[in-house]
Design a protein around this nucleic acid. Sequence first.
DNA 1: CTGAAAGCGCTTACAG
DNA 2: CTGAAAGCGCTTACAG
Lengths: 348, 348
Amino acid sequence: MPSRRVGGKPTSSDVAAAAGVSRSAVSFAFNNPQRISTATRERILAVAADLGYAPNTLARMLQAGTTNSIGVLLPQRLAQILENPYYARFLMGVGQICDQEGYTLLLTPPLQDSVLKAIPYAAVDGFIVCGLETEGAEVAELIRRDIPFVLIDSDRYENAPSVEVDDWGGAREVTRYLLELGHRRIAVLSIAPGPDVAERGYRGPLGRRMSGIEDALAASGLTMADVALAEVPVTRVDGYRATKELLAAPERPTAIMALSDVLAYGAVDALQELGLSVPDDVSVTGFDDLAESAWFRPRLTTVRQPIVTKGRSAAAFLISAVRGEDQHPHQLLGTNLMVRDSAVKPLM
Amino acid sequence: MPSRRVGGKPTSSDVAAAAGVSRSAVSFAFNNPQRISTATRERILAVAADLGYAPNTLARMLQAGTTNSIGVLLPQRLAQILENPYYARFLMGVGQICDQEGYTLLLTPPLQDSVLKAIPYAAVDGFIVCGLETEGAEVAELIRRDIPFVLIDSDRYENAPSVEVDDWGGAREVTRYLLELGHRRIAVLSIAPGPDVAERGYRGPLGRRMSGIEDALAASGLTMADVALAEVPVTRVDGYRATKELLAAPERPTAIMALSDVLAYGAVDALQELGLSVPDDVSVTGFDDLAESAWFRPRLTTVRQPIVTKGRSAAAFLISAVRGEDQHPHQLLGTNLMVRDSAVKPLM
DNA sequence: CTGAAAGCGCTTACAG
DNA sequence: CTGAAAGCGCTTACAG
């Protein structure tokens, strides 16, 4: 009866001792069958099974220098990320490539509210970095540690691959569409920016969307001062609340342009509750084109961004970076205005 | 100018050499500041910064014997899991506890279509095991390896903590409700079971639901032979397709009882497309009570199971198991029939 | 076919 | 306050 240290898990030494072979032989039995005689191998495996031995995952990874896992470095807590259908869909795209390439997926939220602190605690081969600033401490740390990474929902950055979306074009197109329908009292239901907008202005996707809106307005002789603006966290209930406030204004908007579908859903909830018809009384548009938006009633007119593709590309770029292909591809994905039922000409 | 091996990342030896100290000193500089003089510490840190050194995550974990990560052992590919709002919500619950306790979350899908094969490639402190059989090879492997785990969506099991839902009671209640409304031609839109139902019968949550339905039917003098049954994967479009087939039957059902909200959404899509009103022409019920179901039109009558709580409990149980609290709690969560607008008395 | 040795990088008692 | 040594468990050239 083979014995082992009480308490701890058996190691390859325990198996080697019990089977009367060297640790190398134990390793070969598991990883390199042809380097060992069948008889020895079977004896080792039997002893291992008996002892409940399996090679330690961490030790193996340390030795191999690879984890077969990719990390997603997230800007918010897991609870918030997983509540947001946008991320669910993005992760689905990432997941498709992970499935294909045999990688696991490590969701890495901030540690003690710090994205930076989370980095050293993630056993991954590389990171997909979501919505962080290119000049931030996190990107600097990743560079310093020489960990492969891909940027998404950020600004263009030369030292790493990135996947971006033409947020500017999408926002410009939907704004122009509303203007062409004849809307002049437009409320923008926007996403709360970081704390330092005041000094540094809008950045990343939100910055590009704001600038697209501005450009479209300018083409009609309008400015941001001519639209109402609400900035809220991206949840349905925040969209609902903000819309109620927007509607309390003396001059009711004829159109609400949400910068996220989730916010648009909330806007429709609020309008319906107020007894207003969408789109007859007020038009509503979204941004993202989540799967739900086509089923939503009224079918949501929105800017489609290819979220799943974004996830797929990010994962694919990361995996090739991990494998040592040292290019820095930058992909720019297009947007499409999906004209459906939630926006029409304003009542005169 | 400190030099380092070309190609590789700098190690604590490189820093020690460049700073003229021992490797212990380097380690102390990072982990145990008070065990070293401030001057030495700052010199070491400066050299480390200069070299781009940071302690290797994997080596640290191996040494510490902990990863600060919990794994979710999934029965399907990531793409399928992340497409399913049920899992999104469950993971949200898990995520809440991870956020709170400072754990990362490793999504571990099958490797080469084998859940078992995925186990040795996950650097985690323990697993939440989803929808697997208690007598399966995966559970046996986890026991053998002495890895802490928690079972969900499974059958009761004595050797590990578990979180279960009263699927039996929920299914019984909704069935009884439809019967009491007067429905006699009921179609059950069910979830495709594993390949070996024929020999082994239904198991886990699906088994409990089927048995709840059967018991409620029996109380009205009916059997499973009196209901139509379709078994499909849990996607909206599969629910849609199956409903179209169900509706083609000579005696149209007056009620469709879906065993998942996602399937119920698909059923409503199909009915509306056929020009039938829900609930006036056909009643539809769901199971789960996803967040969307309250916003869905018609508001979905469904069995609520506390999915987020399930995730929270599973994560909390796992973390206490990881911390060595050796109880095996078994939690049974209740269900509630949420009576809303999608089911009414049948037309006579 | 098999084993002794070095190495993957790190941390932590233990001496001084 | 600091360093030499042992150890976390494993794998893989290298000898035989």
